[in-house]
Simulated scan of single mutants.
Amino acid sequence: MNQLAALLMLASGAIHASVNAILKSGGDKMSSRALIDGFSALLVLPFACVVPFPQDAAVWLAGSMLTHLFYLLCLVKAFEAADMSAVYPVMRGSAPVIASAVAVILFGEPISWAVAGGIALVSLGTLAVAWWNAPGLKAIGWALATGAMTALYTVIDAKGVRAAPSAESYFVWFFLALGLCIALVFAVWRGPVFLLTARSQWKPGLIAGALSLVTYGLALFAYRLGDVPRLAALRESSILFGVGIAVFVLKEQVGKARLAGAALIAAGTGLLLALR
Rank of each mutant, 00 (worst) to 15 (best):
A167F: 06
M91R: 02
S18W: 04
C74G: 10
A81C: 05
P165E: 10
A183C: 13
G270Y: 09
A139N: 02
A139R: 07
N2P: 08
A210E: 03
I119N: 10
E109D: 15
S32A: 15
A116H: 04
M65E: 00
V59R: 09
A11G: 15
L218D: 05
W60F: 15
A95Q: 05
V249D: 09
V50M: 13
V228D: 04
R190G: 08
S94C: 12
S169M: 10
A148F: 11
V247S: 11
W173F: 08
F70C: 10
P110N: 13
P54R: 07
L206R: 05
M91N: 12
V247D: 07
R92P: 02
Y88D: 06
L218M: 11
P89S: 11
K29H: 06
H16W: 14
V59M: 11
L66G: 05
L137K: 15
G136Y: 10
W113Q: 15
S85F: 08
N133A: 09
V90G: 02
L66T: 08
F248V: 13
V254D: 05
V59C: 03
L225A: 03
S100I: 09
S212D: 02
L218H: 00
W189T: 02
Q201I: 05
R224T: 06
D28P: 09
L206C: 05
A130S: 13
A62W: 03
A183F: 03
F186N: 00
G93N: 11
S166H: 11
L275A: 09
L73K: 03
N133W: 08
F186L: 01
T215W: 03
T126Y: 07
S18H: 01
S100F: 12
R33E: 12
P96M: 03
R92A: 02
T146W: 04
F186M: 03
D28N: 14
K159P: 10
I36Q: 02
P52M: 11
T150K: 12
S40H: 03
S31C: 13
G217L: 03
V19T: 08
L180M: 14
G27L: 07
A34H: 01
E252K: 08
A116C: 03
V161Y: 00
I140V: 15
M84A: 06
V193S: 10
L220R: 04
L106M: 12
A48W: 07
L66I: 14
S212G: 05
R258E: 09
V87A: 12
V44N: 00
K159H: 14
V249S: 10
G209E: 01
M30G: 01
A82H: 01
L272Y: 06
D37K: 04
Q3E: 13
A62S: 11
G191A: 10
V59H: 09
N133P: 09
I156P: 00
I239F: 08
